[in-house]
Amino acid sequence: MAALRFLSDADSCLNLKKSIPLLNELFHIHCKIGEGTFSSVFLATMKSSNRHKKFALKYLIPTCHPERIERELQCLQQMGGKDHIVSIDLCLRHQGSVVFVMPYMKHDKFSEYVRDMTVEETKDYMRALLSAVRRVHQFNIIHRDVKPSNFLYNRANRKYLLVDFGLAQQCTEYNAKNLEAIKTNAGTTEIQSMKRKRSDEFNSNAKKDADIKCNCFGKPKVCALCLTRPQQTAPRAGTPGFRAPEVLLKHPSQTPAIDIWACGVMMLCILSGTQVFFRSPDDCTALAEITTIFGSRKVQQCAEKLGKKIIFSENLPGIDIMSLCLKLRKRNRSMMHNRENSTCKVLPDIEYPKEAYQLLIKLLNLDYETRITAEQALSHPFLNL
């Protein structure tokens, strides 16, 4: 198996060199260190530096849309290098192949530290994460894929890096809270004009829908009228388990608040000592998992505010999130302690202050309009104790 993997990595490196010949002149390409839907990442050293300086080469698959590549490149150029956001040193293109050359940072796996982070370490981690997300939002950008594997952490040196802007999108919808909290590149007049246009379109569509009434709303069936209507589309990019409720409910107007929800899920993993927390294979299962925590009534209220309706076969009361985290940590400690011949580290008995859970609840607010912003979160008592 190891030999097969080595051959696979060697073939991948060879293909990369063939795709962009200039890479072979500049770098020693060692191995593949990461792979996603739209790209592969390779470890390399510059030939002129005698292998001292390491780089991460992100090779975008040739079928990537040019706009996606341009958007990611702009994000790295504008935001990179500050507040724990990865920078870019070079971009190489040959025919349909593109490679981003970025600094390499050695990092630990989330599963290796999520269960035994101290209170102070958790504060540092969340401060760095929220600082990076705040900077992204200041540029009117939604990262859309905030998750542990995209927030690199070198535990020994306490270094952090937010990476992978392949799914990033320009934010096109604002509410009053975000207008105050986020620095935008658009002027006030342009935003107001955009809002009026959307409002006119919404009111026009609403009148049309009101004239023709369906008989299946709120019922476990779909009528012939609804079957003839066009399919509703909304951005769904992101990783299962980290998608916010408004994404799962296909709300068309999504804001930077979806990144805040993902930060909340990461904090939930840390406080509960559980990884991965949400194991949802699809959006319906994801909503069901969220419902077991927050209760059916709160999820229904969230859906109603987004113009949706969810029907549950039974009413779920919801769970106190602090009690849930404590119970999961206790269970994980017990499981690891009882394993025979286990090489796993025993989960320490860490007591987080109540302020930690208060921040967690604000990050995991079901209502995206009242969900805390990155700026507000950084001023929360837990991160300033």
Rank of each mutant, 00 (worst) to 15 (best):
Q300I: 12
E304T: 09
L271T: 07
S272F: 09
T343A: 10
L287V: 12
N341V: 01
T239Q: 11
K327N: 05
A224D: 15
C269N: 15
L306E: 04
T274Q: 14
C269Q: 15
P240Q: 05
A224C: 15
P220V: 02
T292K: 15
E340Y: 11
M322C: 06
A234D: 10
K309D: 14
G264K: 12
P348Y: 01
I293D: 01
I293C: 08
L271V: 08
E246I: 02
K213W: 03
K308H: 03
Q231A: 15
C263W: 12
P240G: 04
K298T: 00
M336K: 09
K221L: 03
L248Y: 12
C263Q: 07
F217N: 10
V346L: 11
R297G: 00
D283S: 10
H251V: 00
P256H: 11
E351Y: 01
I311K: 09
G295D: 04
C214Y: 03
S323H: 12
G273N: 09
K345E: 02
C263S: 09
F277I: 06
K305R: 13
S334G: 01
N315M: 06
E351S: 13
W261L: 07
M336N: 10
S323V: 11
M336G: 05
V247H: 01
L306C: 09
V276A: 13
L316F: 13
L248C: 15
G318N: 07
F242I: 02
A244V: 08
F294A: 04
R279F: 00
P256T: 11
L316S: 11
D320V: 10
R229W: 08
N341E: 12
D259E: 05
L248G: 10
I270M: 12
K309V: 15
T233D: 08
M266V: 07
S253R: 12
D349Y: 07
R333S: 14
R339W: 03
T274M: 12
K345N: 05
R329S: 05
G238R: 00
A257D: 08
K298H: 06
V265M: 04
F278T: 05
C214I: 00
V265F: 04
A303C: 05
G307Y: 10
R243A: 11
L287P: 06
T291V: 09
T233H: 07
R297P: 00
M322R: 13
Q232K: 15
D349E: 14
C344D: 10
L326I: 11
T274W: 10
L249N: 15
P230V: 13
D282E: 09
D283V: 06
T255H: 01
L324F: 15
L287N: 03
L248H: 12
L287F: 04
K330T: 15
E246W: 06
I321W: 04
A244I: 01
K250L: 14
N332R: 13
S313I: 05
C344A: 14
P348L: 06
T228Y: 02
